[in-house]
Simulated assay, not measured.
Amino acid sequence: MTVADGTARLCAPAPGGGDLGLWQRVIDALRTADQWGSSDSTGTPEIWAHITEGQR
Rank of each mutant, 00 (worst) to 15 (best):
M1Q: 08
T2I: 11
T2S: 13
T2K: 10
V3G: 05
V3F: 13
A4W: 09
D5N: 14
D5K: 09
D5F: 08
D5R: 09
G6K: 00
T7K: 02
A8Q: 09
R9K: 12
L10G: 07
L10P: 01
C11L: 13
C11Y: 07
A12F: 11
A12C: 12
P13A: 15
P13W: 05
P13L: 13
P13D: 15
P13I: 08
A14Y: 02
A14W: 02
A14K: 01
A14P: 04
A14E: 03
A14N: 04
P15G: 09
P15H: 01
G16K: 09
G16W: 05
G17S: 08
D19Y: 05
D19K: 01
D19M: 07
D19A: 09
L20P: 03
G21A: 14
G21I: 10
L22H: 04
Q24N: 12
V26H: 02
V26P: 02
I27R: 09
A29G: 12
A29M: 11
L30T: 05
L30Y: 04
L30K: 03
L30C: 12
R31L: 15
R31G: 14
R31C: 14
T32E: 15
T32F: 03
T32V: 11
A33I: 00
A33C: 15
A33F: 04
D34M: 02
Q35K: 06
Q35L: 12
W36C: 09
S38Q: 13
S38D: 12
S38T: 11
S39K: 01
D40P: 01
D40I: 07
D40H: 05
T42S: 14
T42M: 08
T44V: 15
T44G: 06
T44K: 05
P45R: 06
E46T: 02
W48E: 01
W48H: 00
W48A: 01
A49T: 04
H50L: 15
H50S: 07
H50E: 13
I51K: 03
I51P: 01
I51W: 04
E53C: 05
E53K: 08
G54I: 10
Q55K: 11
R56L: 12
